[in-house]
Amino acid sequence: MKFDDWIQDPRSRLDIVAGLVDGILNALTLASAKLVAQGGLTLATIGKVAAVTACTTSFVFFVAHYAQLRSELVRAARELNLLAHGHLATTQLGKQILQESLWGALVASVCGVIGSTIPLGLSLAAPSLPIVGLALTVALLGLLGWFLASSVFGSPALWAGGLMLGGVVVTAIGIQLDILS
């Protein structure tokens, strides 16, 4: 598949945008206390958050994709009147959905790492203005919510607003918990 086709495929867009959102939310949850404490953020912290994001995002997206595609095969087997419902998973389709799930998890994981690095990188670049970094991150969440809405044919304003609100809430939780202290 060509890059243009791949990026326009709604499933790819969902992996990319949801991965970025997941990364940003992970960073805000884990490190927002470090963000607001001036000078509390280091490159090592950014690396740790990125590593955690890569692990959780890849695992969650792989399981979600694989479970969804396996259930599609089971439904197809029922429609085709196959006696063994797991039959299609033993064919080439089984390998195909495994590859698709792994690829989706990899894309989401890479995007998650990028997403987690954005807010932390912004704050590291301007350590004296942590609020600006946080505000830009929440605004970015709103933008991603807008794109996510177009992928799932939802209301852009609702999705953008919901993600921005979620960003503010997880930031408050992250500051309260101060996980990385």
Binding site: E72, L73, A76, E79, L80, L88, Q92, L93, Q96
Partner: peptide
Amino acid sequence: VDKALARP
């Protein structure tokens, strides 16, 4: 031959 709509 029959197949599911989406794949193969």
